[in-house]
Structure formats: structure tokens, C-alpha cells
């Protein structure tokens, strides 16, 4: 918290030095604008709109990424087929996806599709690495004792893969918000955070740009905390819990 306070202080000093609201709004101005925004119903509708789409894109990417990695780990053919696709999606500029999605579909689902495409390769690559890094000694135990797959997965596979999945989720949440909001700014779906940022730019309202950016950072941080907490809880449930 002290570090955050320090950087807000730096921001305040910079705003005083620049002394032009149009170039750099002060933290106080942003806070005032934020306080105005959160009191309106439109603010919450806008946040809900973007959160629903970007959150869904992230969740879908997490599911598809895990399934793809599982498939790639189980089959060399699947791995050979998926690897170039994952590399291509990871390397494609986000703007290319935004334009293509706008050509192929309506802007309403733009943030969902773009955040999905940005997160899938991260989850796929990390989870596949986690699967490949499972303890071979424990896998031999499972082979010798003929441990059924449904018992092996929570006991051996998931604990090995979970840290990689958590790492992917941490990276993925931020990526989903960055790419999702960027897509909204370009595609301008009605009632989205991206549209609000675009409006702020048109009306040269720097305080609004900062206020909505703070909202995006807070949402991203909040979602990351929730996801990590849920995974941590799942991890503990899979571990000891009770002797039963």
C-alpha cells in the first residue's frame, strides 16, 4: 500500500508541475470524477457490460486452453496440429483480430472474442508445460499400482499442473482486460468501457480517461484476486482436508 501511495504522490507532483488538466489530470480530479461516475446507474451498466464479455472470454479461454493442453499432452498428432495454431494466435497482433472480428461478427461480442483469443495461448502453453513437468516417479507409482485415471487426476496431475494454471490465469486476466478494452475502443460496442474511453478522448476529458483506466485496473486486479483465491481453495480441497 505504501508503494501505491508513493506513486500516487509522484503522479500528484507531476500533475502540479505540468499544470495542464488536458495533458495530465491530478489524482484528486480523477478521484472526484470517479466519485461522480460511481453514483450513476450508467456506470454500473457499463462496467457490467464489459465485465460480462471480458470475463466470459477469459473463462472460455481457460477452459479451452486446459482442454487443448490435455489433448496435446495425450496425443502427439494433436500436439503437432495445435502447436502452430497456438503460435499463430499468440503472434498475431491484437488489432488484426479486432478488425477480423469486426468484419466477421458484430461489435457486441468483440471484447469476448478478442480476450478469448489473447488468453487461450497463454493457458494452453502453461498448462501443457505443467502436464509435461509432472513427477515421473509418481506417474510410475500410478502405473505400477494401476491407479484409476479419475483418482490419478486429482492426486497427481492437478497438483502438478495447478501452479502453472494459476500463473497462466494471473497473466491471462490482465491480458484479457487490456485486449478486451482495446477492442472496445476500436469497435465501440454500445455501453462498454471502451466506448466511454473513446468518448473521453473525443471530448478531451483526461480525467475521464484516467478514471475509466483506474476502473479497468481495479476490475482486472479484483478478477485476478477472485480467480487466484478460488484456485487456492480448490487446491486446498484437493490436498489433505480430512483423512477421508
Amino acid at each position: 500500500m505504501l508503494a501505491v501511495a508513493f506513486w500516487i504522490g509522484v503522479w500528484h507532483v507531476a500533475a502540479v508541475v505540468v499544470d495542464q488538466d488536458l495533458l495530465l489530470a491530478s489524482p484528486g480530479d480523477v478521484l472526484v470524477r470517479l466519485a461522480e461516475l460511481v453514483r450513476t446507474g450508467d456506470f454500473w451498466a457499463t462496467v457490467g457490460h464489459s465485465f460480462a464479455r471480458i470475463g466470459t472470454g477469459f473463462l472460455a479461454a481457460a477452459v479451452v486452453g486446459v482442454l487443448g493442453a490435455t489433448l496435446a499432452a495425450a496425443s502427439r498428432v494433436a500436439d503437432a496440429l495445435l502447436a502452430p495454431l497456438v503460435t499463430a494466435v499468440r503472434s498475431t497482433p491484437v488489432v488484426s483480430f479486432i478488425i477480423l472480428v469486426l468484419v466477421w461478427a458484430d461489435s457486441g461480442q468483440l471484447a469476448l472474442v478478442v480476450s478469448f483469443l489473447m488468453v487461450v495461448p497463454v493457458v494452453h502453453t502453461n498448462v501443457l508445460e505443467g502436464i509435461r513437468q509432472r513427477d515421473p516417479a509418481l506417474l510410475e507409482v500410478a502405473t505400477v499400482f494401476e491407479v484409476p485415471t479419475l483418482r490419478r487426476i486429482p492426486a497427481i496431475d492437478v497438483p502438478a499442473v495447478l501452479p502453472y494454471f494459476v500463473s497462466a490465469c494471473r497473466t491471462g486476466v490482465g491480458l484479457a482486460w487490456k485486449s478486451g478494452v482495446a477492442a472496445e475502443v476500436i469497435g465501440l460496442p454500445q455501453g462498454s468501457i471502451g466506448e466511454q474511453l473513446y468518448q473521453a478522448k473525443i471530448f478531451l476529458s483526461t480525467a475521464d480517461v484516467f478514471a475509466w483506466t483506474v476502473v479497468v485496473v481495479a476490475l482486472s486486479y479484483g478478477l485476478e484476486r477472485v480467480v487466484v483465491a478460488l484456485l487456492d481453495r480448490a487446491s486446498r480441497r484437493l490436498a489433505v482436508g480430512s483423512p477421508a
Binding site: A137, E140, V144, F145, A155, I156, V240, P243
Partner: peptide, 18 residues
């Protein structure tokens, strides 16, 4: 088949019972 390996090879996060 069953075995005691040179190393214990237990699932470290699980209880003895599990």
C-alpha cells in the same frame, strides 16, 4: 503389482490415509 521404491514416492500434499 505393488512396490516400495527406493524413494518414498508419496503424493506429498495428501494425507497418509489418502
Amino acid at each position: 503389482r505393488a512396490a516400495v521404491f527406493q524413494e518414498n514416492r508419496l503424493c506429498e500434499q495428501l494425507s497418509a490415509v489418502r
